[in-house]
């Protein structure tokens, strides 16, 4: 195994253009998906936490369950949606990075919604009376609680990022693993492994592992810092 590892490190140290292109696309897709999931999921989760309506319990259970949605199922659903023979076929999005962003958003959104709901619900128990006393109603309290729960929420968002950047099933189905176009780290690892071409696969594996480690270290440090700084 000496050979592939050395080549892999060489690819990384030389900042090999194919490798960089794949990493760049992976980050672009996953970060976009995280951003969209947050834009939708944070208000939605906070809304679920602070409102009461018939069927609320069912919605909460649904989002909790969707956190365990297998990526391939999400991929298949988005594939059927975006396929030319599907309802959104005219958008011509299948086998594009946009399709992959959409699929990963579907994967991350339940995590963001469920976590936000639970964080905001807990905060409301603590803050509710005080905020009402200060004149904030529940709608006004939403951004307040989201901001005050920012550290806990960040952990959840990073969990979502981790799930999206590690998954291969959804992006493979809706992206098609097209070289230079929709090939991400995980789909490239799959392909290169099946080619018996382990150098690039290992290099990408190392990068992915490093990314995950960095993110977790970051999350942990922010948590520590926040405990000291924000109380």
């Amino acid at each position: 195994m000496d050979g592939p590892f050395v080549t892999a490190l060489d690819l990384i140290l030389r900042a090999d253009s194919v490798l960089m292109q794949i990493i760049g696309l992976s980050l672009r897709v996953t970060l976009s998906a995280v951003a969209i999931a947050c834009l939708i999921g944070l208000p939605l989760g906070a809304g679920l936490a602070l409102t009461r309506f018939p069927g609320r319990g069912a919605v909460i259970v649904l989002f909790n369950a969707l956190m365990g949605l297998p990526p391939v199922v999400a991929g298949l659903a988005v594939y059927l949606l975006l396929s030319r023979s599907g309802p959104l076929g005219a958008l011509d999005l299948l086998f594009t990075p946009s399709a992959m962003i959409l699929a990963q958003t579907v994967l991350i959104l339940p995590i963001v919604v469920s976590l936000t709901r639970s964080v905001v619900e807990d905060l409301w128990t603590e803050y509710g009376d005080q905020l009402l006393s200060l004149g904030a109603d529940r709608a006004r309290a939403m951004p307040t609680l989201l901001w005050d729960g920012r550290v806990s929420l960040l952990t959840g968002v990073l969990a979502g990022f981790g799930r999206a950047s590690a998954e291969v099933g959804a992006v493979l189905i809706v992206g098609g693993n097209i070289a230079g176009h929709t090939r991400t780290m995980t789909t490239a690892i799959t392909l290169e492994t099946t080619r018996g071409n382990l150098d690039l696969a290992i290099a990408l594996g190392i990068v992915l592992l490093g990314l995950t480690l960095t993110l977790n270290a970051l999350a942990w440090s922010i948590g520590q810092w926040a405990r000291v700084q924000l109380g």
Binding site: Y127, Q130, S133, L134, G135, T144, D148, L230
Partner: peptide, 29 residues
């Protein structure tokens, strides 16, 4: 009434600076 306030046994301060805590009810108003 608009012009009333309450202080609790355990104050709930926002996870923000002292100044931001003072700013908050004014922004709400």
């Amino acid at each position: 009434a608009q012009q009333q306030a309450m202080v609790f046994q355990r104050p709930v301060l926002l996870r923000r600076s002292v100044a931001a805590n003072l700013d908050y009810p004014l922004a709400v108003a």
